[in-house]
Structures are given as C-alpha cells and as structure tokens.
Simulated assay, not measured.
Amino acid sequence: MGLKIRLARGGSKKRPYYHVVIADVRSPRDGRFIERLGYWNPMLPKDDAARVSLNQERIQHWLDHGALPTDRVARFMAEAGMMTRDARSNPNKAQPGKKAQERAAEKKQKEEDAAAAAAEAASAPAEAPAEATAE
C-alpha cells in the first residue's frame, strides 16, 4: 500500500483550507484518509504563525513507515526544519516559445538590415542636384 502525506481541501468556495493528511495514493484528494497530521490556511498572511501547523512526531512516524510527502507538503516540512529539500528552479520557464523566438530573430534581422542600409546611404557621396540646363 503506497502512502502519501498530502493536502485534502476543505473550506468553502473561494475560501480554501487544507488538512495535511496521510492517505493511500489510490484514494481521492478529499476522500478517505488514515490520519490528520496538520493543516494549512492559505488565506492567512505568510508571516502568520497559524498559517501552517504540522504534528512533527506523527509525520516522522509515517515517514519511517515509508510514506512520501507531496511537493507542497515537503516545502512545509523543509520550512519547519524536518527535512532538506533541493530548491527547484527552471531558468528556461520565462523564455518565449520557438515561434516567438523566431519572430524576434526576424525582427532583429530586419532592424539590422535597415540600419546597415541607412549607414550605407549616409556614407555614399551625395550626388549634386541636377541643375536646370534648359535655358
């Protein structure tokens, strides 16, 4: 039986409240669970002490019995000093997609060509204006 330490949503619509529970991986998110291990209230300010509460003894008990925390619960446990968690960062997340990069490269190329043409026109000797010889 695979066990997960995960969040079960409670609260009303647009007012979420989560219980940290130990549950079988096959049970639904808000369905049957084995034990409640804490809570998380995302509506409270981040610096509020009552935002996250974890029963560290029971969580350690379930970790010893092979339970795995979800990513969000692992973050809470790392903040509480119960475990170490590698920081995840995706430096490519903010990069535009392939099509947008191609469009940007084309635009840059057109600007460079226009700048080169303007520089070439400025460096070429100016032709004398044609004088009226029809006198």
Rank of each mutant, 00 (worst) to 15 (best):
Met1Asn: 08
Met1Val: 12
Met1Lys: 09
Gly2Lys: 07
Leu3Gln: 05
Leu3Ser: 03
Leu3Thr: 02
Lys4Arg: 13
Ile5Leu: 08
Ala8Phe: 00
Ala8Met: 01
Arg9Trp: 09
Gly10Val: 01
Gly10Pro: 00
Gly11Ser: 07
Lys13His: 06
Arg15Val: 15
Val21Cys: 07
Ile22His: 04
Ala23Ser: 03
Asp24Ser: 15
Val25Pro: 02
Arg26Met: 02
Arg26Phe: 01
Ser27Asn: 06
Ser27His: 03
Asp30Ile: 01
Arg32Ala: 12
Ile34Trp: 10
Ile34Val: 09
Arg36Leu: 05
Arg36Gly: 10
Leu37His: 00
Gly38Ala: 04
Gly38Val: 01
Tyr39Arg: 11
Tyr39Asn: 10
Asn41Pro: 00
Asn41Leu: 02
Pro42Ile: 01
Met43Lys: 14
Pro45Asn: 06
Pro45Met: 04
Pro45Glu: 03
Lys46Val: 13
Asp47Thr: 09
Asp48Phe: 06
Asp48Cys: 04
Arg51Trp: 05
Ser53Asn: 08
Ser53Ile: 03
Leu54Val: 03
Asn55Ala: 09
Glu57Cys: 06
Arg58Phe: 00
Ile59Ser: 00
Ile59Phe: 01
Gln60Ile: 11
Gln60Thr: 15
His61Pro: 01
Trp62Leu: 09
Leu63Cys: 03
Leu63Trp: 00
Ala67Lys: 04
Ala67Arg: 01
Leu68Pro: 02
Pro69Tyr: 12
Thr70Ile: 00
Asp71Glu: 14
Val73Asn: 01
Ala74Glu: 05
Ala78Glu: 06
Ala80Gln: 08
Gly81Arg: 04
Gly81Asp: 11
Gly81Ser: 04
Met82Cys: 05
Met82Asp: 01
Met83Pro: 11
Met83Cys: 15
Met83Phe: 15
Thr84Gly: 13
Thr84Asp: 13
Arg85Ser: 02
Asp86Ser: 15
Ala87Ile: 07
Ala87Ser: 10
Ala87Thr: 10
Ala87Glu: 13
Asn90Arg: 10
Asn90Leu: 12
Asn92His: 15
Asn92Gln: 12
Asn92Gly: 13
Lys93His: 03
Pro96Gly: 09
Lys98Asn: 13
Lys99Asn: 10
Lys99Arg: 13
Glu102Ile: 14
Glu102Arg: 12
Glu102Cys: 12
Ala104Cys: 09
Ala104Glu: 08
Ala105Val: 09
Lys107Asn: 08
Lys108Leu: 15
Lys108Glu: 15
Glu111Ile: 04
Glu112Ala: 15
Glu112Val: 13
Glu112Pro: 07
Asp113Phe: 03
Asp113His: 01
Asp113Leu: 10
Ala115Cys: 11
Ala116Leu: 08
Ala117Met: 02
Ala117Ile: 09
Ala117Lys: 04
Ala118Asn: 13
Ala119Gly: 09
Ala119Thr: 05
Ala122Pro: 04
Ala122Glu: 08
Ser123Ala: 14
Ser123Pro: 06
Ser123Thr: 14
Ala124Met: 06
Ala126Leu: 13
Ala126Asp: 07
Glu127Pro: 10
Pro129Ala: 10
Ala130Gly: 09
Glu131Pro: 07
Thr133Asn: 12
Thr133Cys: 12
Glu135Ile: 03
